[in-house]
Amino acid sequence: MKVRILIIGLIGFGLVIVLLARGCESPANKGEALYLSKCANCHGDEGKGFSIYPPLANSNYLVKNKDDFACIVYYGIEGEITVNGQKYSQRMLGDPTLSATQIANLMNYVYGKWGKDKTEVNSEDVERRLNNCESKLVK
């Protein structure tokens, strides 16, 4: 009987540890998972882009437009842009289902992995940016 209680207790303890580890997943890891599920189809797993989709890795456009990143993710962008000297005009649809926290995690991942500015943003930063961008982008 004592062995059975000990085994059940150990299993319960293990489950608690697993649940805590999942809840404590870093924003960068959450951003990577989000990137791979939402962005990699067009921009590639390594952020290098494809012929009609611009790269995010080492992108001069991301350096110049960091304040617009949240807006582009949320609302999308249409029209010609130039990234690293190459012109792209494929429309990118936004994803208004993403929360400010998810966009912050995505931004932190992209800029942390491929950008020169490693300054992290939080959900309040994203909300501020989203409140100032609607008129800039085609929805």
Rank of each mutant, 00 (worst) to 15 (best):
G47M: 00
F69R: 11
N131A: 15
I81A: 06
I81Y: 10
G85V: 04
Y35V: 14
S99M: 13
Y74D: 08
V63N: 09
K66G: 04
Y74F: 14
I8V: 15
S99Y: 05
V83N: 00
R91Y: 03
K48G: 09
N29E: 14
Q90W: 05
Y61R: 05
Y111D: 10
Y109S: 09
E127P: 07
N84H: 03
V3G: 11
P96I: 09
N122H: 10
C24K: 13
D45C: 06
L56M: 07
D45N: 13
E120R: 11
V110I: 12
I103Q: 01
S59R: 04
G112W: 00
L34W: 01
I72V: 14
D125V: 10
S135H: 02
G47E: 01
I7K: 15
G115S: 01
V63Q: 04
V126E: 00
D67P: 09
S59E: 03
L130K: 02
D95L: 07
K48P: 00
G14Q: 01
L19N: 11
I52Y: 13
A33E: 06
D117Q: 02
K113R: 12
N29F: 09
A33I: 01
G112S: 01
Q86P: 07
Y88E: 04
G85E: 08
K30W: 09
G115K: 00
M107P: 03
I17P: 04
K118S: 09
K118H: 15
S123M: 11
E124P: 05
L6V: 14
G94P: 06
L93Q: 12
L137R: 04
V121Q: 03
Y53T: 00
E78I: 08
P96N: 11
V110A: 07
G44R: 12
G31A: 07
E25R: 14
N65I: 02
N132V: 01
A104Q: 09
T82N: 10
V18M: 08
V110H: 04
K30P: 13
C71Y: 00
I72N: 03
A21Y: 01
D95A: 07
K113F: 14
L19Q: 09
K2R: 15
L93K: 12
K38A: 15
Y88D: 02
E124R: 11
W114T: 05
Y88W: 08
V73D: 05
K38N: 13
G47N: 00
R91H: 10
P27G: 13
C39E: 05
G12K: 06
R4S: 10
V18D: 04
V73W: 07
Y75W: 14
I11C: 05
E124C: 08
K136Q: 02
G23L: 14
P54V: 06
G44A: 07
F69H: 08
E124W: 12
K118N: 11
G85Q: 03
L130A: 06
